[in-house]
Computed example of a mutant assay.
Amino acid sequence: MNAIMTLPTEAQMYKAIVQRDARMEGVFFVAVKTTGIFCRPGCKAKTPKRENVEFFATSAEAQAAGYRACRRCHPLELSGATPVWLNDLFQRIKDDPNRRWTNGDLELLGLSPTRVRRWFQEQYQMTFHAYLRTQRIGLAVDRLRSGEDVTSTAFGSGFESLSGFRDSLRKWVGETPTSAKQTEPIFTTRILTPLGPMLAAGGDSGLCLLEFADRKMLAKQFQRISRLFQQPILVGSHEILNQTARQIQQYFQGERTSFTLTLRMDGTSFQTAVWQHLLAIPYGQTASYRQLAERLKNPTAARAVGRANGDNRFAIVVPCHRVVRSDGHLCGYAGGLWRKKWLLNWERQHTNSTGQIPLPLGPP
Rank of each mutant, 00 (worst) to 15 (best):
N87I: 14
L106D: 13
R133F: 02
H74Q: 11
N98P: 00
A81R: 04
L261E: 05
H321P: 04
P177L: 11
S168A: 15
S205C: 06
A22F: 05
C320Y: 05
Q271H: 12
F212S: 07
A302W: 13
L343S: 10
Q356P: 00
L330F: 14
A213I: 07
Q285S: 09
E25M: 03
M265P: 00
L169T: 06
A11P: 01
K297T: 09
G36Q: 08
A81I: 03
F56M: 07
Q91T: 11
K220F: 13
S258A: 12
Y333V: 08
R295G: 10
S112H: 05
A200H: 01
S353R: 09
K44I: 15
W275R: 06
I357W: 00
Q249I: 01
D204N: 05
K15Q: 15
I93T: 06
G138N: 02
K181R: 12
T268F: 09
P185M: 06
E255A: 07
S79A: 15
N312E: 11
G362T: 15
F28L: 12
L361S: 05
G138F: 08
G355E: 15
K181P: 04
Y251S: 03
A308M: 12
K216N: 10
Q221V: 02
A334H: 11
M1D: 10
P299W: 10
R100F: 08
